[in-house]
Design a protein around this nucleic acid. Structure first.
Lengths: 302, 302
DNA sequence: CCTATTGTTCTAATAATGAGAATAGTAAAT
DNA sequence: ATTTACTATTCTCATTATTAGAACAATAGG
């Protein structure tokens, strides 16, 4: 029992002017057309088409039904076409380049959810802290955590990346607390070398900038490594909250000088400037903006 | 393969929040629901609902499709309901009282066409020249050819009823022609007694009224009879054009004094004043107004 | 790891649908 | 009034579609 199919048969009969011609156009037997029309009329409880072997005309009700039926059939066609178009536009591969730590830690669950909402999109992700050339390497979108923008690309800001000073309670108990910026001079620093930042710039509660020159410090280009070293009591780190938020929440690390603020940079989604952005890429970026935003979930404890 | 039925299944799944509950509500097996949903998704080329055994959510495309699907389903329901309502409103008996001659001659083909256009209406017709009481005798509509209106009923004018003077060519050859109103005094008149008109009032081309008193004339209360007598050469008749139009067209009768005009009365559809008029009655009256109108087909030869 | 619950797949039974032949109906021509 | 030509309807059989229900798979919670 296909109501819409019956409606389409009815429309064809009306527009062709007879059951025989409708059968030809629909490529089904005229007995089938005759029966479907009769059953439609029976279901509606009135005659739609007045027909004999030599004459043909719509009843009054039939005219009304025909006009409404056309609208319904058009609506269904439009709906199916639009959904097919949207499906086609979204379907396909989305190639993303993301930084190692941030990618693994925060994009993994995000992408898991995104793919569940959009199973027609296939994600291909590249984890790397190196500078990737989006166009050259065929990525749709890259994530970058940076203070500055590349002029060859368009950027959509996803969220702020706050840095904080932190050390383990054991270390602070052993080496003494930190209550002023000057106190830091007597402490062991763990330096991140994966970025161009050589100095730690600290802004106190009065808004005055202080700079610490780290000449003699343990250093690595891995934030995860430095985090683990800090938890192990080896010193004080200056790392993004998205990296150490769980250690802060669990008490493995303690934030130092909370009234001071460090340089805040941002996470961006980068995509080519003068080029059509696939709808699925735009959808993904919108998804991340909504998921992270100005106050990401890892900053709730600040 | 029922597209609309698939849409309705999809809507039910979304609104119930699961395949099992939708199956319960639709009273079909959950395997049937599962298969129809899968086939709908296959036909559209993308996933509408993201589901596992314990979770359930619409995809982005699914949300769009759901909103469109609701509109389509509502349109179909409205369309079917409206047609069923119109069918129910029209279905039933239409009881009509009509004058004998006019009814037989002009309503028979008209009603034949009307019923073909509205097979759901059953006509019950009463041919009679007597004065019928519509309310008392249970008619929906009565036709009346009259110069005046009954104040207890509402009337819709259907068409004018022109009267003309006519005689057969044989009679005129035998008795001499008629070129002035005065000439009529020397001729044999055939008088219709089925109406209250006792005098023949003739208006000449100057607009002056002349009245002929018919004291000594053959008379009958049947227009058909008098028409036949006139064709047989027995005299001059003053009859409605709807009665003698074919005889005028064929030459069996010849119109006399065409520059003069006789009293023109009208045909009306009469229906009760302060009462709901069934839609089928209104439809029938509209049909007659359109079919007859100000210049009915029987007056084309005038 | 086990249990409970939901979704999917498979198979057999049932229902729906179309094809084609035969029949019915109707309008035009003779 | 009869015959002819053409279209619609009905009936029967074969094919296809669909459902029910059992079995299996998947998944989330305890």
């Amino acid at each position: 029992m296909g109501q819409l199919e019956d409606i389409q048969v009815f429309i064809r009969v009306v527009e062709s002017g007879g059951i025989g011609r409708a059968a030809e156009q629909l490529n089904i037997a005229k007995s089938a057309v005759s029966r479907r029309l009769s059953e439609l009329e029976a279901r509606l409880g009135c005659k739609l088409i007045n027909r004999t072997t030599r004459s043909f005309s719509l009843t009054g009700v039939g005219k009304t039904y025909y006009e409404r039926a056309l609208k319904v059939a058009d609506s269904v066609t439009e709906m199916n076409t639009e959904v097919a178009d949207v499906g086609a536009a979204l379907s396909g591969v989305l190639r993303i380049a993301v930084p190692q730590s941030f990618g693994l830690m925060h994009l993994t669950p995000a992408i898991d959810l995104f793919v569940k909402q959009h199973p027609e999109i296939t994600i291909q992700i590249d984890f790397s802290d190196r500078h990737v050339d989006i166009v050259e390497e065929g990525f749709d979108v890259a994530l970058r955590i940076s203070g500055m923008k590349d002029s060859n690309f368009q950027a959509r800001r996803l969220c702020p990346v706050h840095h904080v000073l932190a050390a383990s309670p054991e270390y602070l108990q052993r080496k003494g607390g930190v209550t002023t910026i000057s106190d830091l001079k007597h402490h062991q620093m763990l330096k991140y070398t994966g970025s161009s930042i050589a100095l730690w710039t600290i802004v106190d509660s009065d808004g005055k900038e202080h700079q610490l020159s780290l000449t003699k410090a343990m250093s690595a280009n891995s934030g995860d490594f430095l985090k683990d070293m800090a938890i192990a009591g080896h010193g004080i780190v200056n790392l993004p909250t998205f990296l150490i938020w769980k250690a802060l929440a669990s008490g493995d690390l303690v934030r130092l000088l909370p009234d001071c603020s460090m340089t805040t940079i941002n996470a961006y989604a980068i995509y080519p400037m003068n080029r059509f952005l696939p709808k699925r890429a735009r959808l993904f970026i919108d998804f991340l903006v909504e998921r992270f935003g100005d106050n990401p979930y890892w900053d709730q404890h600040l």
